[in-house]
């Protein structure tokens, strides 16, 4: 546990030092929400039917964009190999990165929910919705963090990552959008969609934790 705590602290420190990447993700999601509001004219009429889709596509794009840079600094500085040779173990290295990414993304998402609440006058900061956002984020962060191990030398990497991860994330997107819709009172019962989100989160985290040591080998 101490080891994991140390790795998480290291990754959070790293995320803070390289905050430009995370700030660009936050700026990107703000711009995306604003672009959607102009494109769909969300300022007029009942925006609630469109809101779940707008929120989750923004989260996914920002998340894939941000988590994609996960191991970039380590690979660029050559510290990734050192980390893998250290006695902490590959799983802890991955868990640390995962928790750091999760915290950073949750902060971005929380700020976007506040922004959307102000812009669209819909109460989005309910405990139920925050739970949906938390579980959905765990699901997609595990997969994108795993896929981010793709070699830094690959050309067009930043375009390739969304192309790789988004098809895999479609079940999560469907579940998250429907659960959010149900939570906003657009349809009945969040239950089955929450179940789908949980299944996806558990599956994605397990798959990522099991496959990371293989993916990280040089």
């Amino acid at each position: 546990m101490n080891v994991l705590g140390a790795v998480v602290a290291k990754d959070l420190k790293l995320a803070w030092r390289n905050r430009s990447g995370w700030l660009s993700a936050a700026a990107f999601s703000t711009i995306a929400v604003l672009t959607y509001s102009f494109a769909f004219d969300l300022a007029t009429g009942d925006v609630r039917p469109l809101l779940p889709g707008v929120i989750w596509t923004t989260f996914l794009f920002a998340g894939v964009f941000a988590a994609g840079q996960s191991f970039q600094d380590e690979v660029d500085d050559g510290t990734f190999d050192a980390l893998m040779f250290s006695p902490v173990g590959a799983t802890s290295v991955f868990a640390g990165k995962l928790v750091a990414n999760l915290i950073a993304l949750l902060i971005i998402e929380f700020s976007q929910l506040i922004l959307a609440t102000i812009l669209f006058d819909v109460a989005l900061l309910t405990p139920e919705l925050l739970g949906i956002v938390l579980i959905g984020t765990i699901g997609y962060v595990s997969l994108t963090t795993l896929l981010a191990t793709m070699g830094g030398h690959v050309r067009g990497r930043s375009v390739l990552l969304p192309v790789l991860s988004l098809p895999l994330l479609i079940p999560l997107l469907i579940g998250a959008v429907r659960a959010t819709g149900a939570s906003l009172g657009l349809e009945a019962g969040t239950g089955p969609w929450m179940l789908l989100l949980m299944v996806f989160a558990v599956w994605a985290t397990l798959a990522a934790v099991l496959l990371f040591p293989t993916a990280a080998e040089q």
Binding site: L143, L146, L147, T149, M150, G151, L164, L168, I170, P171, I174, G175, L196, V199, F200, W203, A207, L211, T214, A215, E217
Partner: peptide
């Protein structure tokens, strides 16, 4: 190896995709 991992995740994703859609 990276592609292999992606292919394995892809197949493992099939039941969840089926369930969701």
């Amino acid at each position: 190896r990276y592609a292999a991992i992606f292919a394995i995740i892809g197949v493992a994703d099939i039941p969840i995709i089926q369930m969701s859609v």
